[in-house]
């Protein structure tokens, strides 16, 4: 199955969403303001912007890992918390977040254990997922025995075990080298085309966003907001030739200019980025 399979039913919808954080000093920081965004089923959407534009917060709002200060987040036709409880999405973080004490297949099986699925169906599904990310030979390996790219493939397999409608990816290849990253990009596109899933992909990399996406959502910081949405009309399937085409470079330039015009008032702001980190760390408690 190739080409755009985009339909008009919104699978994720954010309406008038704001997100405020209370700083330790007592001040309030607006991380996101006036976010309106509809994602169509089967779409591949990237969120791109400078550090501190709130793109990760936006992703976490969709996943109900944090809650909006105002506005409504609808996922798969239901409120975001319900969608989380129904396991309507899978999540991939920047770090693979594999459990050291579980083998590859046990890590992929984890979500299915949480629903108490019947064993044979479970094992079949795990095998299918490892087939999908092309790691069936590594089922009994521990994470430490895999390379960074392989670990991230395991994390993707784990995120897909539920056959979720949506895959949320938070800078999943940020820590990988350029060569591995390009291979992983093609891998993700292949999986996206095979499964027909909707992907929301946070990234720092303009080429990555353009290569992967049907639409690139460009954001700016202070306060975080959407400045432009760029439709990427590159033909599919995309491969090495795509990266070398004139249209590809034109799209990259377009996104880069959108980012630059969004900078507007002064330099980008890292304080939100540090808050997002602090918030993630705060969960340890």
């Amino acid at each position: 199955m190739t080409g755009e399979r985009v339909t008009d039913v919104p699978v994720v919808s954010l309406a008038g969403v704001d997100k405020d954080f209370a700083l330790p000093g007592g001040a309030t920081m607006t991380a996101l303001t006036g976010i309106d965004l509809d994602l169509r089923r089967g779409e591949f959407v990237s969120l791109i912007g400078p550090s501190g534009c709130g793109k990760s917060t936006l992703l976490r709002l969709i996943g109900d890992l944090t809650q909006p200060s105002a506005g409504v987040v609808t996922v798969n036709g239901k409120p975001a918390p319900q969608a989380r409880l129904d396991r309507d999405y899978g999540m991939v973080f920047q770090a693979p977040v594999l459990f050291d004490w579980r083998t590859v297949e046990e890590n992929v099986r984890l979500p299915l254990e949480l629903t108490g699925q019947e064993r044979t169906a479970r094992d079949a599904r795990v095998a299918e997922m490892l087939e999908l990310v092309e790691l069936p030979d590594f089922a009994r390996h521990y994470p430490y025995q895999l390379s960074g790219g392989m670990q991230q493939r395991v994390a993707i397999a784990r995120a897909l075990t539920f056959s979720p409608a949506i895959l949320l990816m938070d800078e999943p290849f940020g820590a990988l080298d350029e060569m591995t990253r390009e291979r992983m990009n093609s891998e993700v596109l292949r999986i996206w085309e095979q499964t027909g899933i909707t992907v929301v992909f946070v990234t720092h990399s303009i080429p990555e966003a353009v290569f992967l996406s049907s639409r690139v959502v460009v954001m700016s910081a202070r306060p975080g907001r959407i400045t432009r949405i760029v439709e990427v009309d590159l033909p599919r399937p995309r491969g090495v030739e795509t990266r070398e085409s004139r249209r590809y470079f034109e799209m990259v330039t377009q996104v880069r200019e959108a980012l630059r015009s969004g900078e507007g008032s002064g330099t980008s702001d890292d304080s939100l980025a540090s808050i997002e980190r602090a918030e993630a760390e705060g969960l340890t408690g």
Partner: peptide
């Protein structure tokens, strides 16, 4: 509008 999320 809900109160802002507190950051440790």
């Amino acid at each position: 509008r809900r109160s802002p999320e507190v950051i440790p």
